[in-house]
Design a protein around this nucleic acid. Structure first.
Lengths: 203, 203
DNA sequence: ATGGAAACATACACAGTGTATGTCGGTAGG
DNA sequence: CCTACCGACATACACTGTGTATGTTTCCAT
């Protein structure tokens, strides 16, 4: 009977999920480099053996954490913008949803600060292709197609916009909880203004 | 006689400089994490003992490398923009000088890619306060003062612009040597356009 | 019940950083 | 001059942390 999990499979899956969760917490609290797998294991009440059973390496564990966070985040953002036809409006709604997302300290810290540090920029971007970077790319090309921003290399434009989003993510991740609403608003208006710079000139 | 160095001091300074140079090369070639101090030492024909004599830690060695690169870079950029009175023109000249700088693969790689990875984002930004970040901040505030860009939080605006510059640095560091001129130009126009988005509205 | 495989634990190899100590040549004061 | 010291480095070692190889137990199928 496919779909029915044996007890052992359930246990195994639970362990894996628990590892993922403690790893998320510890990576977010202490950062990738300052978190030893021993800590992750003991906090989950298993040994490092279990960790290496479920994940090939420390890096892969982090990637799994990242993917889990990004899957949820991109889903939310895409969902928020889904109903809107106009490309510009959709992008602005997406931006708002993204800002909301970044106010979660775990997301901001792990995806935008620890991510590139832990995996190296290349590998990180490779992972992000599927998520934030990919989504950004979609928004950018749809804005370009709709004539809302000037025709230019989509790759480079995307990287610029992505960098902006990264800056926002890092800032919100850094900001004290009390400051977040203010910072959030300033980021929103600034990002909008910068993007309007890309609009085709009326001339 | 102050100012005159004893022979020992000269030797010492020379080895320190040599260490700095090989470290620069190796960090740029292999990255910070994949470069062991043993490699730096042996390539300089000394032992790790010498490295630890001159630098308190691997991190400090990297910081020294970074500072050396950034000192030179910011000097060049500031110098290029020095003669120009108009804040906008000065900023554009500075941008051009920066783009030139980033075409040096060593600078781009170490300052914009390895930097945050090696030191962690916080410490990296702390270092950059004195150099690229500080210079960016100056340009931004002078643009704001001159009314070329809208009044807004200078801190946040600076971080946005800094992120843009970082994106450029990374891209040029990544780009194949043959592509650099093209990428450079596209980056330049894109950056200019984005910045114009910050100009106060005529309305 | 029993062979086998999955889910872990245990133990170990190894790389790399940092530190404590040793050595040797240069330099300064008498 | 010479000698006592100090700085520049070398040597050796401790410790942390990753990854791997090998056990051990538990579950499930036959």
């Amino acid at each position: 009977m496919p779909g029915v999990k044996s007890r052992r499979e359930q246990y195994s899956e639970a362990t894996r999920a628990a590892l993922l969760e403690t790893a998320t917490t510890l990576f977010a609290e202490r950062g990738f480099a300052r978190t030893a797998l021993e800590d992750v294991a003991s906090a989950t009440q298993v040994t490092r053996g279990a960790v290496y059973h479920h994940f090939a390496s420390k890096r892969e564990l982090f990637e799994a954490v990242l993917e889990s966070l990004e899957t949820e985040a991109t889903r939310r953002i895409a969902e928020a913008a889904a109903g809107t036809d106009d490309a510009w409006d959709a992008a602005m709604i997406g931006l708002d949803a993204f800002l909301d997302q970044c106010c979660d300290p775990v997301y901001g810290r792990l995806c935008w600060q620890e991510g590139p540090v832990a995996l190296g920029w290349d590998r990180w971007k490779e992972c992000e292709e599927k998520y934030a970077y990919g989504l950004t790319s979609q928004f950018v090309t749809s804005l370009m197609d709709a004539g809302y921003i000037e025709q230019a290399s989509p790759e480079i434009t995307t990287r610029f916009v992505f960098a902006l989003l990264g800056a926002i993510g890092s800032m919100l991740a850094d900001a004290a909880e009390a400051d977040k609403p203010r910072v959030r608003e300033e980021c929103a208006t600034l990002a909008r203004r910068l993007l309007t710079g890309l609009r085709p000139r009326p001339a």
